[in-house]
């Protein structure tokens, strides 16, 4: 598992940061983000909390070995859940990869909270984890297959050498008997 975290302050009040949050893309500095779609959104008429579910489409060249091993393509999709709670002045973005998710997950959380009256604390954490259960079952399967092949080959090897020894010494004994 790999962890990543960082925090810093933006020199803008919380409400300005949260308004700007919806306008982050497209951005020439993040040209890998190609598409953004809201797929679900609700405004809670009691708490005022807004929940948004988005799908981001990214284009990023993966190293050749990753493409060979896991398939996939340049297109990668990410699911994002955003909560904006005006009452607590808290905005969180949780994102998880959809592409290659059967192999590994990248779970990211971003939080925007007021730092001072006109600055906003940005904190970001991410956990990147290969799906160990998958690797374990694949590794178990590989070991089992190798063990079976080994047993079969060992059995055949024993029979094969038995044949060689029998033939060799039967011939030698026969030769001795006739000379």
């Amino acid at each position: 598992m790999h962890f990543f975290s960082q925090t810093f302050d933006f020199n803008h009040p919380w409400s300005h940061v949260v308004i700007g949050m919806w306008r982050k893309y497209p951005n020439p500095k993040c040209s890998h983000v190609i598409s953004i779609d809201v797929i679900d959104r609700s405004v809670d008429s009691n708490t005022g909390i807004i929940r948004t579910e988005r799908v981001l489409g990214c284009k990023q060249k993966a190293p050749g070995w990753i493409v060979k091993l896991f398939g996939g393509s340049e297109d990668a999709f990410v699911r994002e859940i955003i909560f904006v709670d005006p009452a607590t002045q808290n905005a969180t973005i949780t994102s998880v990869n959809l592409s290659l998710s059967q192999f590994a997950t990248c779970f990211e959380r971003i939080q925007y909270t007021p730092s001072t009256h006109d600055t906003t604390l940005f904190s970001q954490t991410a956990e990147i984890q290969a799906r160990m259960a998958l690797w374990r079952s694949a590794a178990d399967g590989l070991e089992k297959w190798l063990a079976q092949r080994f047993e079969q080959n060992a059995q055949l090897g024993k029979l094969a050498f038995t044949d060689v020894l029998r033939t060799l010494w039967e011939e030698r004994h026969a030769q001795q008997a006739t000379s």
């Binding site: 975290s5 960082q6 969180t92 904190s123």
Partner: peptide, 24 residues
């Protein structure tokens, strides 16, 4: 796997390290 139907609990903001990356 992650319904995320409720806002996540607020972690205490860390005042210390400004940037870090580590491997476990």
């Amino acid at each position: 796997e992650h319904p995320l139907t409720e806002p996540p609990p607020l972690p205490p903001p860390s005042a210390s390290a400004h940037s870090s990356a580590k491997t476990a």
